[in-house]
Design a protein around this nucleic acid. Structure first.
Lengths: 203, 203, 203, 203
DNA sequence: AATGAATGAGAATTCATTCAT
DNA sequence: CATGAATGAATTCTCATTCAT
């Protein structure tokens, strides 16, 4: 079993790097270590990636994307309905995002923040994060705007401010979760109780 | 100027490390680099610190403490007054904390999150962060509880949940600020509009 | 000749370290120096050894073993013969051991005593030396005992004492030799004139 | 008590170096460590010694001398007596030498062999050891010669060879003792049973 | 696709020594 | 006498990367 498919090894490298990066960060992560984990030797790393950096870029694009882009079209359609329930939509979006973190959200979160930190020295990472971030921001902005239009979200605050508060609280809970893994991440949804004017009648 | 006082050099080392760490992180920060910055040679670092790690511990204790401990007594007294304005107190606390970040909050924030990330591989850092964190949590809890008691803060949500939401939003805005430095950090106070039942009359 | 076989380089490293250690000792021996001697760079040392210490262990096991273990079986058989000449056997053993030191016994001896000295700070080395030492001791004990049994070795002294004296004199001559290389190491065999009751008739 | 007598500090430095050198050797022994042991700081070492090497030379001359020089005159006189007992004299000499090692012979021995090893890179040490050695050699030679003259020591062996054997056995037992501290160093005297023709009547 | 030897640039750390105080 | 800050050279070790096989 000395020779496996290229795809398979590549996938394993990214997956292992993703796991190890959570605790060690990108700099402290050595290629040797990754390759030992998957039972291959250092040299073969370069069959699959041009450099360690290039691997990070691929990791970030395939494993750390929150997928706002994919959701956008679908959600916009739902929002266009006359009788749409914005709170329900927002809850669905949140659920999807948390689901996208996979079965070990702590690792995902830690790796993601390792990337955020690493972005301070890497232009490519910085740009990708900004893009990601803006997509999220625009996406939330649309939802909040629609909510206000329909009178479901309070209008005594600026749309952008509400958007920022929502983004902030999600990011904040991720950090909270890293510092105290016993925190319940779904608790973040309680903020909706303040955000939405008419609370869901049946609850 | 070959021989300066130990205190002075030590202070300069910590200050430089604090600055450089914001962008590079602790691992990528080299002793050589720090010492070149302050016009001293590598070897003399070890006159002042037993190891790079030891320096980080001192940096964290002297430069990254949010100082909840110091505020506690004073705030508790204010809260015990019959006619105290909890919102004003909370705003004062927030202002003090932001003020404690110094004149370059972006650097402070970046360095702090570098530490959060680093805590994943360092027991001492992890413990210190946890302590810091718990102090903050308890501190906020006291304020929120008193606010609810006086009917100033909405009581339809669990005290601990509100505390978590407040902590989360502050942490979240720090990350937001790192990703987008143009974000106005004081905007985070808007959350009080939701939190407090009786909005300040003059607005 | 940039890429050689691992075995070859490893052998060269050990051989060079063995030579250099005689004069400098293990601590003062630098990896850089060894590698320069064999025309390779520092970094490649670690392809072959996990650490400098690990290299010493391998050096000691492959280059400093006196090989008592290997001789034991053969000698025991010779001793079991009714008419065996114990003095001849002992002389043969001594000759073999001196032969095992290679063509530069001074280097061997110096390196060996560098190891003896180093054993004071290294558990692994200490244990190996003790093992070696005990093998030698047991081995000699068997020979002396048989010599006494056959009346060839004087019986007015305790077997263990004679064994110790024999070991001591060999070790002592090695030190003597280090301090004064002009000393004739085979002179040590004269002790047999005292040890053996019936001197060889033909002398 | 910041300022003590120079003599006192100097003595303490040498004594501490003597102790520490037994285990660590001269190279691995740091000035910092010595000075910490005696409650002084690194810098003040140089008030007392020009360099680390200079300190070793003084250590060796004051703490590692076996004192053959001092004994010579006295012993020669004893030997000149018609009815002198050479065996008794030799035993007295041996006892004196062992006594000169102080109350911790293991430390003395280890330090001495650290010096022997170190002599391979230091001219001054090498010369001193050689001198010491020659003194011992000459000294023993005189005793053995007189023993043979008086018919007390066997004459079927060359005087110089016997001298070498005696020196060797003493050195060898020191090494033996380092490797196995449970060995009884006085056992070495048993060699006299072989050396002397007429065994002491009363034993 | 994979191996593993080699590289070379740096990393942290140690340490004898100097020197102003 | 003693201090302790500073130096600079040396040391072990790590690691991304290259390349012949």
């Amino acid at each position: 079993m000395k020779y496996s498919t290229g795809k398979e090894t590549k996938r394993k490298i990214i997956e292992t790097a993703f796991q190890l990066m959570a605790d060690k960060g990108f700099d402290a992560l050595s290629i040797d270590e990754i390759m030992k984990h998957i039972g291959r030797t250092k040299g073969s790393f370069y069959v699959h990636f041009k450099s360690k950096e290039e691997m990070l870029y691929e990791l970030m694009r395939t494993r750390l994307d929150r997928g706002y882009g994919h959701m956008a079209a679908e959600i916009k359609e739902e929002l266009s309905l006359d009788n749409c329930d914005v709170r329900a939509i927002l809850e669905k979006v949140t659920a999807k995002i948390y689901a996208s973190l996979g079965d070990d959200p702590l690792t995902w979160t830690a790796t993601f923040y390792q990337l955020v930190i690493y972005s301070r020295k890497d232009e490519t990472v910085r740009e990708w994060l900004e893009l990601n971030f803006n997509q999220w921001s625009e996406f939330l902005h649309i939802i909040v705007e629609r909510g206000q239009e329909l009178g479901q979200i309070c209008s005594d605050m600026d749309t952008q401010t509400i958007t920022n508060l929502l983004m902030g609280i999600v990011l904040g809970y991720e950090i909270l979760y890293m510092l105290k893994p016993q925190v319940d991440m779904t608790e973040v949804l309680k903020i909706h109780d303040w955000l939405f004017v008419s609370k869901p009648s049946a609850e």
